[in-house]
Design a protein around this nucleic acid. Structure first.
Length: 273
DNA sequence: CATATTCCCTGGGTGC
DNA sequence: TGCACCCAGGGAATAT
């Protein structure tokens, strides 16, 4: 499941590979991925346009084509592959961008959860979801007090609050489990129960975990590859996520898997209070 | 307003 | 081997 580090890796890889390419055609195999507009408008907005740059905020990608911007969210299993236009369209390739140099960018998504939308340049961050995104842990204004202000009155579990993109943009299920483990905080504790000091520890660990994961190219679990066949290496650094039944590195007690806010959650019952 | 639930979708896993 | 069934999961829509 691509979270901030995986999306960052996808962005950097695609920047090297497709910036400067011009769209010759777009084939839409599964149109429901496209939000808020009909497929013909989607195609017409891109044909003839040249990709200028690619940016990322939270888990969203922004493909800048000059006067329009293509926003993409990979959700669970979305990935991009760069192929020759001569290669046949395979199962789960839902949208194919044909470039004038006979290469193609293919959006592949087994679960069909990903979304795409074309927005006029300058308004791409105003659409549903994106407009409400909170700060990224690397933003200068992602301060301890910013985070504390968002959580200190809440009765929701701290795990759910950290997963909430309106509070912290970019964290997903894997990294939230790791952040809570490193912070020694039980994922079920409510926001109002978390102290200012603990909030500072959480904020620091958000940055530490994401920074390390970006350097390692993200996390590859369950045969997930971020894009273009790339394999991340952060899975070797995981302390708790997917580790149920294995001994905790700090105390040796066994990692448990529970549900918090409807999400599978891994934690150390001794180290996380 | 805050929080909880439902829905989207399919491969993989389970049980028979 | 095949089949029915259930589940995971990010985020938007809907309900409480």
């Amino acid at each position: 499941m691509p979270e901030l580090p995986e999306v960052e890796t996808v962005k950097e890889t695609l920047k090297r590979q497709i910036i400067g390419k011009t769209v010759a055609d777009v084939k839409i195999v599964y149109g429901k991925l496209i939000r808020n507009q009909d497929p013909n408008h989607f195609k017409a907005a891109l044909i003839g346009k040249t990709l200028q740059k690619i940016e990322r905020y939270g888990k969203y990608l922004f493909f800048d084509f000059g006067d329009v911007v293509l926003t993409v969210h990979l959700r669970m299993e979305g990935k991009f592959f760069l192929k020759s236009q001569d290669e046949p369209i395979v199962k789960h390739e839902h949208i194919i961008f044909y470039f004038t140099d006979r290469s193609t960018l293919r959006y592949h998504d087994v679960r069909k959860f990903g979304t795409m939308e074309i927005m006029p340049a300058g308004s791409e961050r105003l659409s549903t979801g994106i407009a409400k995104l909170g700060k990224e842990p690397f933003d200068s204004d992602f301060t301890d007090s910013y985070l504390y202000d968002k959580i200190y009155k809440s009765t929701r579990p701290i795990k759910s609050l950290l997963l909430d993109q309106e509070i912290v943009a970019g964290l997903g299920n894997i990294y939230v489990d790791e952040v809570l483990y490193l912070s020694g905080i039980d994922p079920r504790r409510t926001g109002k129960d978390v102290t200012m000091v603990e909030t500072g520890i959480l904020a620091n660990n958000c940055r530490a975990v994401l920074k390390k994961a970006i350097i390692l190219g993200g996390t590859t679990i369950r045969s997930y590859t971020s894009s273009l066949g790339i394999t991340g290496r952060f899975q070797n650094e995981l302390n708790v996520h997917t580790k149920n039944g294995l001994p905790c590195h700090k105390c040796g007690s066994l990692i448990e898997k529970i549900k918090v806010g409807g999400r599978g959650t891994y934690y150390c019952p001794l180290c996380q209070k």
